[in-house]
């Protein structure tokens, strides 16, 4: 029998095998127990001894060729089958995904954490104090005796207990922290809720957060205050922000300043956010008033310090271009879920 013819026929048929079933049949036909190649090998005994080695070698060659070809064909068939099934399994990837139950922090917490983190990098630690305060700590010890004109700056909620009020700012925390830590140097921020007797409008709330900063030591100056605030503004609002300082008045700082930042929308050209001024007011600040230092236990002749205060809600409104401060405590999920 012509082994060459056998090999060629087998290879040709192999090529025609399109699936594993056909391959299996082919295998049986040529390489199985009764397959042609197997039979051809068995026939070796019928040959004269001298022809056997050459014949055996030839049959084996045919077998090896067919085995290798079969393996290759099998791989091809598998690949083709995989490709087919991949096509068949294709999804409409534009269908929506299965919803996940997502939790989220209130936007006020998110912003507060950002602010706290920035000041933490600058070495300021968080100190919190009470919200229901006495007049003494909220006003008097902060250099505002009764009937001081500056008290007009804070419309106050009084309680039915005389001399007890809702703190109008986080500044009473300055007194608490000074009295606790004196005579150690201080570098803290005082975040927390404050209250003002106001009509609730898109621009004013009866309750809002403040973050106050306080640094006290023997070598703390106005230029440090400027640098600290600038570092903060650049971290929160972007590295290219510039701040501007103008003189202001707070009873518990002297000198007192107001800090403006170039408008994040127009960059100083004037727009509706900055009311055409090119500047956005971001915080009030100043050097701690000698009277306040003394009330906290520090000798103003030796110690100096700075303090600043900002409103996270206002900052959030600037960051996101919000127009209505009432949204913060309305807790409408359609608002909260966007942060």
């Amino acid at each position: 029998m012509d082994l060459n013819e056998l090999q060629q026929r087998a290879l040709k048929e192999l090529e025609a095998c399109a699936d594993e079933l056909a391959l299996h049949a082919w295998n049986g036909r040529y390489l199985g127990k009764t397959g042609e190649v197997t039979l051809a090998l068995k026939r070796i005994g019928e040959l004269p001894a001298a022809d056997r080695p050459a014949y055996g070698q030839k049959v084996n060659q045919v077998k090896q060729t067919l085995l290798a070809a079969a393996e290759q064909q099998e791989r091809k068939i598998r690949e083709a089958e995989l490709a087919r099934s991949l096509t068949a399994e294709a999804l409409d990837v534009t269908l929506p995904g299965r919803p996940v139950q997502r939790g989220r922090l209130h936007v006020a917490t998110q912003i507060m954490r950002r602010i706290i983190a920035i000041f933490a990098d600058l070495g300021f630690q968080v100190y919190r104090s009470r919200e229901v305060e006495d007049d003494l700590t909220n006003f008097e010890l902060l250099n505002m005796p009764p009937h001081h004109p500056a008290r007009d700056m804070w419309d106050t909620f009084h309680t039915t207990t005389p001399g007890v009020l809702l703190r109008t700012h986080t500044s009473p925390g300055q007194i608490h922290v000074m009295r606790e830590l004196c005579p150690e140097p201080i570098r803290v921020i005082l975040p927390g809720m404050c209250y003002r007797y106001e009509q609730i409008t898109t621009r004013s709330e009866i309750m809002f957060q403040q973050v106050e900063g306080l640094a006290i030591g023997t070598d703390i100056t106005m230029t440090d205050l400027k640098g600290t605030i600038q570092a903060f503004a650049q971290r929160l609002f972007g590295e290219n922000r510039t701040v501007r300082i103008r003189s202001s008045y707070f009873p518990f700082t002297e000198p007192s300043i107001e800090v403006d930042m170039d408008c994040i929308v127009c960059g100083g050209q004037g727009c509706s956010l900055c009311k055409g001024t090119g500047w956005l007011e971001i915080m009030g600040a100043g050097m701690v008033h000698p009277v306040v230092l003394r009330n906290g236990g520090y000798d103003p002749a030796r110690f100096s310090g700075f303090a600043f205060g900002m409103g996270p809600q206002r900052i959030t409104m600037l960051l996101y271009g919000l127009k209505d401060i009432r949204q913060f405590w309305a807790n409408d999920l359609r608002f909260l879920e966007q942060f």
């Binding site: 070495g123 968080v126 140097p185 570098r187 106005m222 230029t223 440090d224 640098g227 600290t228």
Partner: peptide, 19 residues
Amino acid sequence: YDRLPATLLREQLPRQRTN
């Protein structure tokens, strides 16, 4: 105030506490 430079605190970092 525009003529003041901006500096960072030189003062030694106060004792740090865990809150």
